[in-house]
Amino acid sequence: MNTILELKNLNKSFGAKKVLENINLTIPRGKIVGLLGKNGTGKSTLIKLINDLLTPTSGEVLINGKSPSVESKKIIAYLPERTYLDKSMKVAQVIKYFAEFYDNFDSQKAYKLLEELGLDVNQKLAKMSKGMQEKVQLVLVMSRKADLYILDEPLGGVDPATREYILDTILSNFNEGASVIISTHLINDIERILDDVIFINDGKIILHSECDKLRTEQGGSVDEIFRRMFRC
């Protein structure tokens, strides 16, 4: 099956407030897709719907052709915006925990990536800086052999030099045939690794295009095109 994610007429409201409106989206396998939008435009809500953490008001989410379930969670590796790990644990304990929880978790790979990032597996999460904790989380996610990686603001708390390293880690570690969705507002940092971009504003998808096509057709970087479109 060539489509990993399909959203059909997806709507989400919180009370009277419409957060997502009539979202239609198809993401094939083997793509890195940027989900770009200003703060509070519905990016995280969309991601939570895909991860079955919220229920749609109407419409459908299909992962590999099926509705969200335990099965879909097995093939999605999700990096949430906020950490959910028990901070009193040491990194090595978290790895053991993940290895027990997920069939497709590769502990060796996790250890290798942590070493490359210069992180101490015997350190407690609580003793690490925010940036270090984010790196640990990313390593945990990228060490799963998933079909769909969903990264919600993976660069938020890290310095520009480390951002480069994180992007390279994403690039060289996503499973062949898998897709990656990265939500961010740090477009400039991330656009070089993206195949496609989705611009989301006021709960609607207003653009879905190949990055290089966009650069050719509209001129300038994706970041500039985004700024032009959403000038306040």
Binding site: G30, K31, I32, L167, L171, S172, R192, D195, D212
Partner: peptide, 17 residues
């Protein structure tokens, strides 16, 4: 393609293109 993309740190699809 994949190794080349890895070495040069680019997206494999972009390298393919």
């Amino acid at each position: 393609v994949r190794d080349f993309a890895n070495e040069t740190k680019v997206n494999p699809n972009t390298m393919q293109k």
